[in-house]
Design a protein around this nucleic acid. Structure first.
Lengths: 132, 132
DNA sequence: ATAGATGCAAAGGGTTTGCACTTGA
DNA sequence: TCAAGTGCAAACCCTTTGCATCTAT
């Protein structure tokens, strides 16, 4: 049988609140902030507290099940790890964040000589299909 | 003679504290966070309060004299406007932030149909020449 | 039984705001 | 004069932490 997720050597337990939070992330299909995750999970566990959400998220990040999605100027969002490389598009009207496929070309050309490019982060912005 | 900067139709006045804050930005030659600007300006105006710095920065941003430099996962920094379009490279070893010239190609190809692309934000990461 | 999880409330950063007072034009 | 700016403290938002309690294993 499968080994449970671990965090600093501790076993991560299964509880109704964590189930609800986890399902919020798997069902969302888009990066969620702690607040959003809290509100979604509260539909199932109304008494859920903020701290629990933050603790769960932080453990899952360290355990490698979630990855932070950091958009410039905004608090962190999180999404399931293991997706293939992608970037994000932020709608300036509704604030929604969407995944976009592909990658820009010519990144290496931009790197100053002597620098070593290891990763990149791209955020497109404008209007989503709903708001356009 | 030159028209003074304006903000929402109000004239922006000249005071010793604002002079000190402004000079911190012009002298720095790199993006400053509010805290850094405060500390630099306090060398000249020791009694300077945080609120004054935030109010000055926000007015200058709206007046177009400063632009925010937003790096993913970090509080906003600000720099003088008017620089030519550029992006940033952040060194994961020394934490330094560098400007890089140019722009990636093929951004429009990444935009989902129906979406309207208005701007983009790119952060390269890796090792700078010093740390490589 | 007991390590791990929870909720609450307090505490910490960063940023904004209300208010009475000061100051530049 | 008097609108704009200032300092202080309180208020906010987001996130973390201490603690007593609860619960999965």
């Amino acid at each position: 049988m499968a080994r449970p997720l671990r965090h600093n050597g501790r076993t991560l337990r299964h509880t109704s609140q964590r189930d609800a939070i986890r399902d919020a992330f798997t069902a969302a299909g888009r990066p969620l902030g702690p607040r959003e995750a809290l509100e979604l999970a509260r539909k199932r566990v109304p008494a859920l507290g903020v701290a629990t959400v933050y603790r769960a998220i932080n453990q899952w990040v360290e355990a490698g099940w979630l990855v932070p999605v950091l958009l410039p100027g905004e608090p962190a969002r999180y999404e399931q790890a293991g997706k293939h490389h992608h970037h994000h598009f932020r709608c300036r009207r509704c604030g929604g964040v969407f995944e976009v496929e592909g990658c820009p070309a010519g990144l290496r050309k931009m790197v100053p000589r002597g620098f070593k490019l290891e990763s990149h982060d791209l955020v497109l912005a404008g209007l989503c299909a709903q708001c356009a």
